[in-house]
């Protein structure tokens, strides 16, 4: 299944020279193909499992299901809890996406268009939020939020998720910015544009798809956030990940297969859109 490149003539020459190498080659190729096949299967299995189970009409888990139907989706629609959890998640994710763009986009000009010392450090420093152990980071945020009274507040969650969304936005937009030649700005300025005019009419315009892509990914990141909410959220604050987490912690509710499937579809569409946008910006 995982065919390698067809053996070419150079390989043949090498093989004649070293007959044992050919045997070794076959073994390594087969072993690595097998490992990749197994990994691929293992990575896909959970997603397929959840999607299949979401169309089960059984009241208990069994795989494969005994009866098929839309029972889980009906239950989902009837329970107002999931809708309100989704609503809170979205209400947090939207400002997170917007704020991450507002914070990151100006920085791009400092990183890519100035000679400010240490500007390169910002590239890595800006990513800190997503490369340090999140549970330890959550405790640190807990300490600060307790100090300034942000625990259990809506804006507290927005700010906390912002620290995770900023790196995502930075990664996507900074890569796009490095592909915009500075000559375009210079050409605009020679033609009579001020620096700000050149940035607005040329650079930001060309960056727009990447910013949109970054916004989508920042939104998804915030929507997915499940650790900060446990440390920083209040009793009444139930985001979608928190609701699912709590439900799974106290038993396996089959309705979650339906939510999970819908979330998967929505996220794949959003990420596909983001990738498409980022690609369009690259042209």
């Amino acid at each position: 299944m995982f065919a390698r490149t067809p053996p070419d003539t150079t390989a043949g020459v090498a093989a004649r020279r070293q007959p044992r190498a050919l045997l070794g080659d076959r073994f390594t190729a087969a072993a690595s193909a097998a490992a990749v096949a197994a990994t691929t299967f293992a990575l896909l299995a959970p997603a397929v499992l959840v999607a299949v189970l979401s169309f089960s009409n059984d009241s208990f888990f069994d795989f494969p299901p005994h009866a098929w139907g839309l029972r889980q989706y009906r239950t989902l629609l009837e329970d107002p809890r999931w809708g309100s959890a989704l609503w809170l998640s979205a209400r947090i994710a939207l400002p997170v996406a917007v704020l991450s763009a507002l914070v990151v986009v100006p920085t791009l000009f400092t990183i890519h268009r100035s000679r400010l010392p240490w500007r390169g450090v910002l590239q890595v420093g800006g990513l800190t939020g997503i490369i340090i152990p999140i549970s330890a980071y959550a405790v640190a945020m807990y300490g600060v939020f307790a100090q300034i009274g942000l625990l259990g507040t809506y804006w507290g969650l927005v700010l906390a998720n912002l620290t995770l969304a900023v790196p995502v936005m930075l990664l996507v937009t900074s890569a796009a910015m490095s592909r915009i030649p500075v000559e375009l700005e210079l050409a605009a300025m020679v033609a009579g544009a001020s620096r700000v005019q050149a940035w607005l009419a040329i650079t930001l315009r060309l960056l727009a798809p990447a910013i949109l892509a970054g916004g989508v990914l920042a939104f998804v990141t915030s929507l997915d956030e499940a650790v900060f909410i446990n440390f920083l959220g209040g009793p009444g604050q139930e985001t979608l990940p928190k609701a699912i987490l709590d439900s799974v912690r106290y038993g396996l509710d089959p309705v979650i297969t339906a939510i999970a499937t819908l979330l998967m579809v929505a996220t794949s569409l959003a990420m596909g859109l983001a990738a498409q946008l980022a690609r369009r910006g690259a042209r």
Binding site: E183, L186, A187, M189, V190, A191, G192, A193, R195
Partner: peptide
């Protein structure tokens, strides 16, 4: 600034 110089440029 380049804008106020009144030159044209072909890159």
């Amino acid at each position: 600034s380049p804008a106020r110089r009144g030159v044209g440029m072909v890159f």
